[in-house]
C-alpha cells in the first residue's frame, strides 16, 4: 500500500495540498477525476518524487519503480520512435518489445523522428515508452488526448494487460475512460485538493459490457 499522509504543498500564496491523505492499493487502477487546476497533477508529481511536499509523508514507495506518462509527450526530437522508447529500457542494447509497437500501431513508424509524426502518433510513442519502462507503479496524466475512440480502447486494453497485478494511478476528465479502466474512482475538487466522493467499480475491466459501463458512468454522475 502507498500511504500519502497529511501532505502539504504550496507555491507561494497558493495552497495546493493541505493536510491531504490518501491510501492507494498495491494493484488495480485508481482514477482521479476533477476540474483542471485542482491539484491532481501535483499529487501525482509528489508520488513520482518530482515534487517534495513541505510537510507530510508518502510511505510504501521505497524500492518501487514508478513510471510516469506525462500530460505532454516529452519526446526527444533527435531520436527515432524506437530509440525514444528504448531509452527507458534498463540494458544498453535491449530492443523495444515488438508487441508494444504493434499494439500501439507504431510498427511502421519505428525509424521515423517525432517531428514528422501527428499528435496522436506522438502520444502513442509516449505511451509506448511508459509501457516499456515496466515499472511497479504507473502514473498517467490524461493519457489519451488526440487518440480516436477505437484506438483509445485498444491502448487502454494494452495498458491494463501490461500492468495487471500492479498499480495504475490515472488522472482523467473523461468519465468513460474511468468506467472502462478504474477499480476505484476518486472524484476530487480543490484548491486545496480534496476527495469529494469515492466510487468502487467491482466488475473486472475485461468483463465490463456496455450496460456496466453505462451504469458506472451514471453512478459517477450521481455521486457527490
Amino acid at each position: 500500500m502507498i500511504e500519502c499522509k497529511n501532505l502539504a504543498l504550496h507555491y507561494g500564496e497558493k495552497t495546493v495540498l493541505a493536510d491531504f491523505s490518501l491510501t492507494l492499493p498495491d494493484s488495480g487502477v485508481v482514477c482521479l477525476i476533477g476540474p483542471s487546476g485542482c491539484g491532481k497533477t501535483t499529487l501525482l508529481r509528489v508520488i513520482a518524487g518530482l515534487e517534495t511536499p513541505q510537510s507530510g509523508t508518502t510511505a510504501g514507495l521505497k524500492g518501487k519503480t514508478v513510471g510516469v506518462l506525462f500530460q505532454e509527450d516529452r519526446l526527444l526530437e533527435h531520436l527515432t520512435v524506437k530509440q525514444n522508447i528504448a531509452l527507458v529500457l534498463p540494458e544498453r542494447h535491449s530492443s523495444v518489445p515488438d508487441e508494444i509497437l504493434t499494439r500501439l500501431e507504431l510498427a511502421e513508424e519505428g525509424k521515423r523522428y517525432p517531428s514528422g509524426l501527428s499528435g496522436g502518433m506522438r502520444r502513442r510513442v509516449a505511451i509506448g515508452r511508459a509501457l516499456a519502462y515496466d515499472a511497479d507503479i504507473l502514473l498517467v496524466d490524461e493519457p489519451f488526448q488526440g487518440l480516436d475512440r477505437a484506438l483509445k480502447n485498444r491502448v487502454m486494453d494494452e495498458i491494463l494487460e501490461r500492468y495487471r497485478g500492479r498499480l495504475i494511478v490515472m488522472i482523467t476528465h473523461d468519465v468513460s475512460e474511468a468506467a472502462r479502466m478504474a477499480d476505484t474512482v476518486y472524484k476530487v475538487g480543490g484548491l486545496p485538493l480534496r476527495v469529494e466522493a469515492e466510487l468502487r467499480f467491482p466488475v473486472p475491466p475485461e468483463q465490463r459490457d456496455e450496460s456496466i459501463l453505462l451504469e458506472y458512468q451514471k453512478s459517477f454522475a450521481e455521486s457527490s
Binding site: A48, L50, T65, G67, V68, F70, R74, V88, R129
Partner: peptide, 11 residues
Amino acid sequence: RLKEMAFAYRL
C-alpha cells in the same frame, strides 16, 4: 520538462 522526464525514468 525533458530533464524531469529523464529524472522520472531514472536514466
